[in-house]
């Protein structure tokens, strides 16, 4: 009925968070560059910025919500006039809609976030491995 609205709300929140994180990262990078005199931070070589990782979540949430909203439009659950959701026009349907948002909608948001956390976990391991490999390559071989 309106389960996608939960993921839309999460997408809005994560988009705002991404902007804030991006701003902080740029500040930190500038500071690091000023201290080391390098144009690119050494730590940045094997590290994916957190803002980039957050963008993955944003894209999944916005993209999924857009297609789900289209599905609701297809089924006539969204209308181009107030209150936009047909279920919101009477109290009985509105209660059902809220129940669905609390169950299906929240589960959708949770699953997408959990999958994203899994991706972030795997990439963190890959970052560590790449940094380790690079370190062992630069070290002198033991004779």
């Amino acid at each position: 009925m309106a389960c996608f609205t939960v993921t839309v709300v999460e997408a809005i929140a994560t988009t705002i968070a991404t902007k804030a994180v991006e701003k902080r990262e740029r500040k930190l990078q500038k500071k690091e560059n000023a201290e080391t005199g390098a144009s690119v931070g050494i730590s940045a070589e094997h590290k994916i910025p957190f803002s980039r990782k957050l963008k993955w979540l944003n894209r999944m949430l916005w993209g999924g919500s857009a297609l789900l909203a289209f599905e609701h439009l297809w089924h006539g659950e969204i209308v181009p006039y107030f209150p936009f959701l047909t279920a919101a026009s009477n109290p009985e349907d509105a209660a059902e809609m809220l129940r669905e948002m609390g169950t299906v909608g929240v589960s959708m948001a949770l699953l997408v976030t959990l999958v994203w956390l899994g991706i972030v976990g795997v990439t963190a391991l890959m970052e560590k491995k790449a940094a380790k490999e690079d370190k062992s390559e630069t070290e002198e071989p033991v004779k």
Partner: peptide
């Protein structure tokens, strides 16, 4: 990302 996001969401829908 768009398709995986939608796939995950529709998976939840299908489970319910």
């Amino acid at each position: 990302w768009i398709y995986w996001g939608a796939t995950l969401m529709w998976t939840v829908d299908a489970v319910f």
